[in-house]
Design a protein around this nucleic acid. Structure first.
Lengths: 181, 181
DNA sequence: TCAATATGAATGAACG
DNA sequence: CGTTCATTCATATTGA
């Protein structure tokens, strides 16, 4: 096959064991579990984790595979940025049904087509909904300062962030707890 | 995301690992007309359209078929990336020596805004002369060797693809013009 | 029908 | 932060 060696920094993924393409490892490739957890944290309201939080998260997630702090950092950066970017882009071409055809009422489908765009088709809202996690201010609203504090040394976890998805998770639940500050 | 991603389009996901999943997702398939216009814009020098431009383009092209802003966004993103990628693989020699080794970003400088590109033709041309490997050679076929040949008339920016008949023009023949300001 | 290729889509990493 | 680059993944397309 390909000449092994080129292990730049020692990154590699293990998520897909039998992936066809000879996936090269040069950059972090999060495992499903890692992504799941990161996503939950995000959904829980965490958008810009502090250095400490990043450290903790990274540390916890390392259980599921190789990961570094910067990966966590970038993940949140990208996730947040893209959330907005998408919002913005989509908001306009929503109904570009403008001009053109569509003389028939029986049509339809397409309408709904745009709506579900941002709704979770699968995985319903399972995680946590006990607080305002909607800081998805579309515009430049920076009022998302209601950041959550990931603090593991807390003894009063408002709500422990632990996977609640009805799935099999044969792994220690993340020990991160989000609490208001 | 990985397991079940929510991509902008709404369907589809990205299953890593597992063999071909049964999940079918539709993806935008540009019509020849759309491709033609996009290509023309690209050849005209447009490489990284702004959000605003993307919207306009998308809107115009919707006349020829289903299309969304993100499609336009990705199209340019991919087109540019692949052209460069292709070029990179083919250019090892004539770079020869001396002077400035561009790591990879020598000519795009102007991508941020067409403004720069058009208002500073000198710089671009100069760069091109130094590095003949940058802007042409587009394997798009057709003759577009002079893609970035910015007319010395920056006051008469008619080099844009398509007519410069003002600001409006809806339906039929596409009427996209680069908004160089 | 399947292998190879072109290209749409996604995302990690970084830049300004 | 918003934007851009690089690389990868997935699928539509095409050729044999």
């Amino acid at each position: 096959m390909e000449d092994n060696s080129i292990n730049m920094s020692g990154f590699c993924m293990r998520s897909s064991g039998s992936s066809s393409s000879g996936t090269k490892c040069g950059r972090w490739n999060p495992t499903t579990e890692q992504v799941k957890h990161l996503t939950q944290l995000f959904r829980a309201g965490l958008r810009t984790p502090s250095t400490d939080q990043i450290q903790k998260i990274s540390n916890q997630l390392s259980f599921y595979g190789k990961i570094e702090s910067k990966n966590v950092f970038y993940w949140f950066q990208n996730h947040k940025a893209r959330e907005r970017q998408k919002r913005r882009k989509v908001s306009f071409d929503d109904d570009k049904d403008v001009i053109v055809h569509r003389r028939d009422n029986s049509v339809h489908a397409s309408t709904q087509n745009l709506v579900e765009m941002y709704s979770e088709p699968n995985r319903v809202i399972e995680t946590l909904e006990l607080f305002p996690l909607n800081s998805f201010g579309d515009s430049e609203s920076e009022s998302e300062k209601l950041s959550m504090r990931v603090n593991e040394s807390r003894e009063n976890p408002i709500f422990a962030y632990t996977c609640t998805m009805g799935e099999q998770m044969e792994h220690p639940p993340l020990d991160l707890r989000l609490s208001f500050v």
